Computed example of a mutant assay.
Amino acid sequence: MRTMIRYTLLLALLALAGCTNDGEEPRYPHSSRVMLVYMAGDNSLGGYVRPNLDDMRRGMASVPAGCRTIAYVDTPGESPRLVEVTASGMTTLHTWPGPQNSAGAATVREVIGRVRTLAPADRYGLVLWSHGLAWMPSWATGYLTHSRARIGAIWPPTKWFGQDTGERPAAYLDTADLAAAIPNGMFDWILFDACFMASAETLYALREKAAKIISSPAEVIADGFPYEKIMPALLRSEPDLRAVCESYHRHYADDPRPAYRSATVSLVETSQLEALAAATASVISAALSADPEALAGMDLSRVQALDRYRRHFLFDAGSVVRELQARGRIPVSLAEVWRMQLARTVVYEAHTPAMLNLPLDECCGVSMYVPAASYADLNAYYETLGWCVRCYPPDFRIER
């Protein structure tokens, strides 16, 4: 009898361990929801990885049962690894044997595929954590110079998306490559813990990758999102993404350190981005019909910039439409139609009065580029973007 009991227990333990016959794929425990945190931290943000992981660990104590958080972690001088973050600590699920380009589309694709295998789930969410520069091409990272107000000032460090300085030369991840690496339909939501990613150009490129996207049209302080506070809302059966945005905004707006009271955040319904592009196309077409120089001749000093570079390239989309209306280039009725569509697209937006030393008099939650002749090589690239193709007349050529 004891032999039979031991034999039965052994069979049960083998089944629980996921043992399979030769040639069969191992079976992994199924979860109701898995959050993948892709931490491309092999750069100046490496020191912020561990504090964010610790915040996630604390947040997991309040997460519903049956949910998991898996983080891909790439930091300077260490082998990239997949770790599971739980309330009790972190467990390594996989370690790559050597350096890896975490700012490469192939790596993003591999990580997502591996997580799908190791952590099967009914639903997934994705956090993209790194440096970022909206829709700008990788070769343009040295194209922009900081404003004099930014140089030498004592401000908290900020971050953007997709940089790996372990590569020589440093590697960057263009928006088009990122979009190609993320499968359609896998993720319910995407959260960008990175600067500038709430640009119309970027969001439009990612419109089929998730139903909702949380991102910032301006910079993100390097400390990132307050994961201890937001983990329960992210991992609910029906995630409360508005609460996530509110927590992020309040976390910085109420910071006792004045320099840290800087945050912009928006929640976008990606199903509405095509309609927003159509409304924007109507605005641009009407403006160019009224004045072919409506954009090239726009006084950009009258438009709200959302970056702090000497030559701005990210402008508040609402501010652009407001300026075209104020100059009589589009009728009030068309501007109102655009604003109504914006409200259906950006379902939540919040911002502090300033982003570090940049006053935010206007911030609708989405940025857009205004073509300028001084950015000749950038304009040539911009014309290849889906947003530009959709919003500008086929025969329109940006002055350069």
Rank of each mutant, 00 (worst) to 15 (best):
P258H: 00
E228A: 15
A180D: 10
P226Q: 01
W129L: 07
G386C: 10
G113R: 14
V63E: 04
A218C: 09
L306K: 10
N52Y: 03
W155I: 09
N101Y: 05
P64R: 09
L234T: 11
A350W: 05
G47P: 03
A218H: 08
A210R: 09
T202P: 10
P183T: 01
A350L: 13
A222D: 07
E208G: 08
R168D: 14
D42K: 12
A243N: 11
R207N: 11
D177Q: 05
P120M: 10
I214V: 12
T75M: 12
E269N: 15
M1D: 04
A65V: 07
L9F: 08
P359H: 01
I213Y: 09
A373T: 04
D361F: 02
S199C: 13
S44H: 10
K159S: 06
R344T: 02
A194Y: 05
T165S: 10
D174E: 01
V320Q: 02
L128W: 01
T8P: 06
A335Y: 00
Y348E: 13
H146S: 14
H249K: 07
M1Y: 03
A200D: 13
R344S: 05
V268G: 10
M298V: 07
Q163T: 15
N184H: 08
V265K: 01
N52D: 14
A176S: 15
A171F: 03
A287S: 12
A119L: 10
I154M: 05
S282V: 06
Y375W: 10
L36N: 06
S130K: 06
E84Y: 02
L82S: 00
S147K: 11
V366T: 08
G365M: 12
